[in-house]
């Protein structure tokens, strides 16, 4: 009887602690979003109240959509993120297959070389990257960002994918070889479909840091027509810093796409992290 009560108390304490932390985690997002739907006076008078018929206003969103080219920024972010993910996955899977499948001289060394980039941040090389992009004329193009993010994502992708490729059964591949399939076909037809879950994990891991990055867009592609959503909202908010309606609406609009991605992929992301893909 005592033990039961003790147990119930523990459960209660556990839920209490978690609820408190969830409130801390969500409170700022909540405050920003509700205030973005209010008129200026109510933002200041009652910042914690929900918008009602009296205080409801979309003036901030109107300013944002009129002044900033958020659709263009969104499109740029999409192109960069999807493009980088495509190259990370295809190049990463190919290299991982070579390392996992074949024995050749320098296999281990190549694996270590590619793994170097997991620990060393690519930002250290920024000065030389910018110089190279200027020389090749890629500065202020989306290609500059796609290349940088691909290089940044490859080490971890190769590492994770080669772990998974080692688990693909040899019998299957050998059966394919006996049937006369080329090594390329074995990779694209047999192996790639089997490691799709691992590819999804890699994609989700890379997606959010690429979408949210501020450093490389700021340095490699600051021009108006190639701004990403993250940089675009940073610049926009900096200019409209006294227009609270516009700032709050811009923040809410910037939260929206990431939240949508998160709702779609959160299961994948959490499964990826908790399945021990990162060891």
């Amino acid at each position: 009887m005592n033990a039961v009560r003790q147990n119930r108390l523990n459960t209660f304490a556990a839920h209490g602690a978690l609820v408190v932390y969830v409130l801390i985690a969500l409170f700022p997002v909540f405050v920003i979003v509700i205030n973005s739907f209010k008129d200026r006076r109510s933002i200041f008078r009652e910042p914690l109240a929900l918008p009602n018929s009296e205080s409801f206003s979309l003036i901030g969103y109107e300013t944002v959509l009129k002044q900033g080219d958020f659709f263009l920024y969104f499109q740029n972010s999409m192109i960069v993120t999807v493009g980088s993910l495509f190259f990370i996955l295809i190049f990463g899977a190919m290299a991982a297959f070579a390392l996992a499948e074949y024995r050749f001289k320098g296999n281990t060394l190549m694996g270590l070389y590619l793994a170097l980039g997991i620990m060393i941040p690519i930002r250290i090389g920024t000065v030389a990257i910018l110089e190279m992009m200027v020389q090749t004329g890629l500065v202020n193009t989306l290609w500059a960002l796609i290349l940088v993010y691909t290089a940044q994502g490859l080490p971890l992708a190769v590492f994770i994918l080669s772990e998974f490729m080692r688990q693909v059964s040899d019998d299957l591949k050998n059966a394919g070889r006996i049937d006369g399939l080329s090594e390329y076909r074995i990779f694209f037809r047999l192996v790639l479909p089997l490691v799709r879950p691992a590819m999804a994990t890699v994609a989700v891991f890379n997606m959010i840091p690429i979408w949210n990055d501020l450093w490389f867009p700021l340095i490699l592609a600051p021009a108006e027509e190639v701004k990403t959503l993250t940089l675009g909202s940073q610049v926009f908010i900096g200019q409209f810093v006294t227009d609270w309606n516009a700032v709050l609406s811009a923040l809410s609009l910037a939260i929206l796409p990431v939240m949508a991605l998160y709702v779609i992929f959160s299961r994948q992301l959490i499964r990826g992290i908790t399945s021990g893909a990162v060891k």
Binding site: F91, M94, A95, Y113, L114, I122, G125, A151, Y184
Partner: peptide
């Protein structure tokens, strides 16, 4: 062929600039 794209991009955009 399998290794080249990853190694080239990684070397050219990450290791060499570093």
């Amino acid at each position: 062929v399998f290794l080249a794209p990853a190694v080239l991009v990684y070397t050219a955009v990450m290791i060499y600039p570093l």
